[in-house]
């Protein structure tokens, strides 16, 4: 009797399936970590100091965040440069900006500020990025899981995030170019969880002796018009369209905002008036790319923290409906 060693194809298929499903589970686990990170920044109570760095520019910011009664209250105090305080309550953001002899109050809405950089709905990110576990590192005295968000194409940058292993709070985030070089980085130097829900701190302390005035350039109008961008770069969607006053411009400027869930691009449309010098060309400033050209008597400028080809592609796709 001879023993016949059989290595059936069935076994190989099962092994392959196991490997694939294991990798799928791992990827799902990483997305679960991301979801926890997206929520933690909004639902935890914390106070800390973070540093934002973009090229030679460095800003230190002190943050206090409280989640109370389903509402978020945040105060950011910019410690470097000119005094500036940013308050947010839910989606509403109010900025107190010291300018010469007054404090200018600006209003914003619906922005994701650090550490709440990740959107709560991760579906768009899943369409455009893959996650990879890098390892564990200490940031601001806390242990963090390091994850890479690797884009599926070259129309967006790569991100690296450091998520607190205990609370899921985003401790640090970097934007990397195609060669893996850091373009922009923001992260805590120190952070501590708060056990109080006192809101006494939620008021501006910036130059109380100076008059506070509203900034009229932040008077936004949400508009719809004949402008369309039919073939947006893969994964990008229009998220807003506003009309705003830009200092130094006589006519209002339209701004269309596109996003893939994390990266964002603005398209500015300004009517060319007599004597206005057309701007045509491109410019790169760290992570920010700009592309400008003129179409149908309008100056188009596309700006975004995305690769140059993304802003160029959007600019080239603009058409005016008749």
């Amino acid at each position: 009797m001879s023993l016949k060693f059989v290595f059936p194809g069935h076994f190989l298929r099962v092994l392959l399936l196991a490997i694939i499903s294991q990798s799928a589970v791992a990827e799902e686990d990483l997305w679960a970590t991301m979801q926890k990170t997206a929520s933690a920044a909004r639902e935890l109570n914390y106070q800390g100091l973070f540093v934002y760095q973009n090229g030679a520019v460095i800003r230190s910011v002190q943050i206090t965040h409280i989640y109370e009664g389903g509402r978020e209250f945040t105060r950011n105090v910019v410690l470097d440069g000119r005094p500036r305080e940013v308050f947010s309550e839910g989606d509403d953001i109010v900025i107190f900006n010291a300018k010469n002899d007054k404090v200018v109050i600006e209003k914003r809405r619906g922005q994701n500020l650090f550490p709440a950089m990740l959107p709560t709905q991760l579906y768009p990110l899943k369409q455009n990025y893959k996650l990879k576990f890098v390892g564990q590192e200490r940031v601001a005295g806390r242990l963090a899981q390091v994850l890479d968000m690797i884009p599926n194409d070259n129309l967006r940058y790569q991100y690296r995030i450091w998520s607190d292993t205990e609370y899921g709070l985003l401790l640090k985030m970097s934007m990397l170019d195609m060669q893996g070089r850091t373009l922009e980085q923001i992260g805590f130097n120190q952070v501590a969880m708060l056990h109080t829900k006192d809101l006494d701190w939620f008021q501006p302390k910036i130059d109380a002796t100076k008059p506070y005035v509203m900034d009229d350039t932040t008077d936004l109008t949400h508009t719809e018009d004949n402008l369309v961008v039919p073939n947006l770069p893969a994964g990008y969607k229009k998220v807003d369209q506003i009309q705003l006053k830009v200092p130094g411009r006589t006519a209002p400027v339209r701004q269309l905002i596109f996003s893939d869930g994390l990266a964002s691009v603005s398209l500015f449309v300004e009517p060319m008036i007599k004597g206005m010098q057309p701007r045509v060309g491109k410019k790169s400033m760290g992570s920010t790319n700009v592309y400008a050209h003129v179409l149908n008597g309008y100056q188009l400028v596309v700006v975004g923290e995305v690769p140059a080809q993304t802003v160029e592609q959007i600019a080239q796709q603009v058409t005016f409906k008749k």
């Binding site: 934002y52 922005q111 650090f114 922009e184 830009v246 964002s264 700006v303």
Partner: peptide, 20 residues
């Protein structure tokens, strides 16, 4: 001014802090 406006109104922008 366009770059500044982009940072002001983009949904996610860490460059917000360098507006000064």
């Amino acid at each position: 001014q366009y770059v500044l406006a982009h940072h002001n109104y983009a949904p996610t922008s860490a460059t917000y802090y360098m507006q000064n």
